[in-house]
């Protein structure tokens, strides 16, 4: 009896906590389904639920274009990071020479340089190259990721040497060992790195803000800023736009929660 009561308390407590945590998001959903007349009605649920704000938001703003921009940029960066981190990480882990040892030490040093500090000179450089308002500026600077290289180097280093010795005897070079042995074994690590990179790129704010002016290149995050200052009064439309922009990451997270969780745990604690 005492145990049942304790269990009830536990579930009530944890549910209240969880509800409070998601409350701000619920208010966003709530306002996004309201007609203009109901926006300032303080009820919990929309009194007359309608999808009109979504229709208006989609008609008025090229939201799908913004999402597509974010998607293309995040995919390109993720693909690039996986490729470069695999190659560089493999070389640093499995080819031992004075060069790789020095390079590894340098990359560990680069882990300490936060992007928020280099954004200004990077912007000056990108500007000089004429890359403002281009996919180049939004992707190329992030493809070589010190954290990605570091994580995969650590992973490749942990693989047993015998696997590679055996492949050597069969006459395989490093390219084949990377492609046929290291990469297949690294699939979980690569998945986690992909989730981490995709999410990080999708959420970029400062960089896309300074290197894009054209609406056609605007990412979803930056677009929200413009929409919210455009629609200061019609909060239902801002809310609908925010929900549309939230959906892709929300769905991806619900589907691939494990990869995200592993990626975040791996990328933060070991880095």
């Amino acid at each position: 009896m005492n145990k049942t009561l304790a269990r009830v308390f536990f579930y009530v407590g944890i549910s209240v906590f969880a509800a409070l945590l998601v409350l701000p998001l619920l208010t966003l959903f709530s306002v996004s389904f309201r007609a203009d007349a109901d926006v300032y009605n303080p009820s919990f649920f929309p009194p007359h639920p309608t999808i009109e704000p979504y229709q208006i938001a989609l008609e008025k703003y090229p939201l799908l274009r913004f999402l597509l921009n974010s998607f293309v940029i995040s995919s390109l960066v993720t693909a690039g990071v996986l490729l470069i981190s695999s190659c560089t990480g493999y070389a640093l882990a499995r080819i031992s020479s004075r060069v790789t040892n020095t390079v590894f030490a340098l990359i560990v040093g680069l882990l300490l340089v936060p992007g928020e500090v280099t954004f200004l000179p990077l912007y000056i450089m990108v500007n000089r190259l004429g890359w403002v308002d281009s996919y180049f500026a939004l992707t190329l600077p992030f493809i070589a990721s010190p954290i990605g290289i570091f994580l995969l180097r650590q992973f490749f280093k942990s693989l047993p040497q015998e696997l590679f010795d055996a492949a050597r005897l069969d006459g395989a070079g490093h390219f084949r060992m990377l492609w046929h042995i290291a990469i297949p074994l690294a699939m979980p690590a690569l998945g986690a790195l992909a989730a981490l990179t995709f999410l990080g790129t999708w959420n970029m704010y400062l960089w896309p803000l300074v290197v894009t002016n054209a609406e056609s290149l605007r990412t979803a995050q930056i677009a929200l800023r413009f929409i919210s200052s455009d629609e200061a009064v019609r909060y239902n439309i801002v809310g609908a736009a925010a929900v549309i922009i939230l959906l892709p990451t929300l769905i991806a997270f619900l589907i691939a929660q494990r990869a995200f969780v592993r990626g975040i745990a791996m990328g933060s604690l070991k880095g």
């Binding site: 998001l25 979803a220 925010a242």
Partner: peptide, 16 residues
């Protein structure tokens, strides 16, 4: 539910 805010972009969190 507890991990959910990782999937919420900064901009959306700010709007909410």
């Amino acid at each position: 539910l507890f991990f959910l805010t990782t999937a919420v972009p900064t901009g959306v969190a700010a709007i909410a």
